[in-house]
Amino acid sequence: MTATLMRNWLPAIVILALGLALPFLVAGNYQLRLATLVWIYAVLGMGFNMLFGFAGQLSLGQQAFFAIGAYAFALAQIHLGLSLPLAALTGLAVCALVSILVGLPVLRMRTHYLAMATLMFAMVVHDVALRWTDVTGGTSGLRVPPPHLFGDRLERIEVYYLIMALATVVFLLQVFVKSTHLGRALEAVKTDESAAMSLGVNVTYYKLGVFVLAASVAGVAGMAYAMVSRGVDPSYSGIGMVINLLTLAVIGGLGTRIGPFFGAALVILLPQFLAGLQEYQTLLYGVALLLFMIFLPGGLAGLIERPAMKAPEQDTPSERPGRLGSEAR
């Protein structure tokens, strides 16, 4: 029991402790900024993880919600003069609303059709961000005011801890989803929609629910990114973003709880170490990704955590493994 408990929580506790100590270990603002970005990417990764890792719904449009959250957050502050918490709530509400409107039609599709549809949606959002200059500021984007909370301007280190706290909340949300009946239902939806439906799992409801949740979490990440960067521009919804996100997910380990943290750290930090290699950087990046997919399909987190819900118990071989499902038709 305690062993399982340790196994489940120890990696998270280590990451948390490291996160708390990090500002005192890094040298200078640039490194602190990188550390902050790791948490932001981890949040973005956790949203995708819940959507694809837990529920099997492949969306390539998470970057759109990342951007929508950021733009809404910026506009609420610039035009409505809202305070940081209220602007954040506005961004969250806009993301949730848009994701419901988009999710209702596109979630009728599955697998690569869903991936295509969500990617198209993201491209539309990207184009709107580029061309609706009056509102979005076009290519130059929008400036976001310096972060203030309860009248005080936040220091960089305070922003770091604020964002780390957000990541912790999203992490706990993720654990909650995975360890309650919600996780079982999503796993059922992911494995076999019709079987899930025949047991009374409301498949449409869960798919939409997790889509909205993931979109909102992506929006939170986008707002945090805008806060740290003091601005938002169309690159937020660009194709580079979704490539980073997929890399993060694969390297970290899909369906695990701590995978997004590992993935985020690698996606942010690896290019720093490879910077000296200039044009070879992309090549190495690609090779690294391939090696991961071949040798570590469970990602970094797969080394310590099994993607399914419980700690591994022995899979004693049965007399003869049977085939699953769908022999007929």
Partner: peptide, 8 residues
């Protein structure tokens, strides 16, 4: 065809 949830 049974349709179990294989990974569970």
């Amino acid at each position: 065809g049974r349709k179990l949830f294989g990974p569970l």
